[in-house]
Amino acid sequence: MSVKQEEQQVLVSLRDVKKKFCKNLKYNMYYGILDVLRQSVGLPAGRGPLRAHEFYALQGINLDIYAGQIVGVVGANGSGKTTMMRLISGIYPVDGGTIETSGVRRTTSIFALNAGMNPVFTGLENIYLKGAMFGMSKAEIDRKLDFIIAFSELEEFLGSPVGNYSSGMKARLAYSVAIATEPDLFIIDEALAVGDTVFKAKCYEHLQAYVKEKPRAVIYVTNRISKVMAIADRLVVMSKGTIRKDTMDIQAGLEYYIDVCLADMDVNRKALRLKMIRHFEM
């Protein structure tokens, strides 16, 4: 932990967080019935030890997210990144440990930018729909409409159905609505994988200014090394449901990720990625 972090306000604090899932579909349903029955009579559900066919998707997670940071989270598929984001977002309940927030009035999470958008409605109508899904009122969306239109750079297409948009245009629209919610904690889970390079560069620049304006933080989940190098000022490396490295040295963190967490990767691909990290230029 650096001196710089200790001086900053903690927005989210995870302590010994656990989350378990079930590998077997029939047992998954059976445990679901048991959990519903337990909750119906006021007993806690899901917090006990592992049952048959269950596994920890996350275990012993300790993490503090500080104001002013853009935290990159990397990890191989199944390492628990999205599960951790869903726990922080309040979508899933924890099965052990605690998640505490301080000074976080609004958390906006984007897991799939197009989720909730309706293809037969226009871009403008989808701004209101998506904004409502992010918890905004009509007055708030009205107030931020100019910003959303300007940021998305889609003014001339706002009257067209979103179904006619390219994936990049949909991403621009949805991202612009998400950032207009002005969250104290902004979670982006692989959501900027599409979209043109210029727009992505604009988003990165905007995010870097955004976290400096007020006590805010961004958690950026991705497996794309170039994106992490471009935006993150702290890196969390996850593997098999645990945090393996938490560092401010992005280059060293990524090298660790490639070397240790992607041990099965082809040697040539690994060498290529390490080269990219060592010679990365903005």
Binding site: F21, G32, V36, Q39, P93
Partner: peptide, 16 residues
């Protein structure tokens, strides 16, 4: 009340 108590917990079963 049953719905409010249980709908969040069953959500994690839903994704599968």
């Amino acid at each position: 009340i049953f719905f409010q108590m249980t709908s969040g917990r069953v959500l994690e079963r839903l994704t599968i």
